[in-house]
Structure formats: structure tokens, C-alpha cells
Amino acid sequence: MKTHPWLTTLLFCCALPTQADGLPAARQQELTHFVRQECGFCHGLKLTGGLGSSLTAEALKNKPAETLIPAILYGIPGTAMPGWLPYLSEADTRWIVDKLLKGFPE
């Protein structure tokens, strides 16, 4: 992640959703729903895996954001993972990966 340490600190200090990590709160909410529901088809609503791999923080702990971001945007050749580039921006994807690595919100 390229998020500055102070941004992370700010995020943890704020009780309400903010634009601290670059996305409006409404978009964050959309993306949370998107990951739980659309990604959840293959990865499980609880992201514990299905035909897709587990996306829990524990399962991802050795995966750097730098490999996860392109996997989401462009898909993984030879697997069922499609690229989501038409529907997710790079900023969206960074936010998703950041949250996945920390344990995705409900």
C-alpha cells in the first residue's frame, strides 16, 4: 500500500467514515456491498472462499497489495478470476485491497 502513515492514523482516529483514504463515504459503502455480494459469489459472502480463494486478512497476509491490485483489475490468467477494470477504478481497487488486508468491513 502506498497510503501514507498519517492517513492511516487519521482513519483510525475518526469514528465516522471520511474521505481520508480518497473515496467518498458513499462510494466506500457501494464498494463494501460490491465486494460482499459480487465477489462473494465465488469467494463467499464471508470471503472465506469457494471456487475463488479465501480473501480473509489471514489468507492474504503474505500477499502484497502490488499483486492484488492488478489481479482485481485485470484478472488472473488461467483461473476463473475476471478483470473488473470496466467497473472499478484504480482508486476503488486500492481501497478494496487496503480493506481486505485489514479484514474487510461487514
Partner: peptide, 8 residues
């Protein structure tokens, strides 16, 4: 072309 499949 290996089209992306968004849901099996």
C-alpha cells in the same frame, strides 16, 4: 479470447 465471466 477468454472473455471475463462475472458470475459462473
Amino acid at each position: 479470447q477468454k472473455l471475463p465471466v462475472y458470475k459462473m
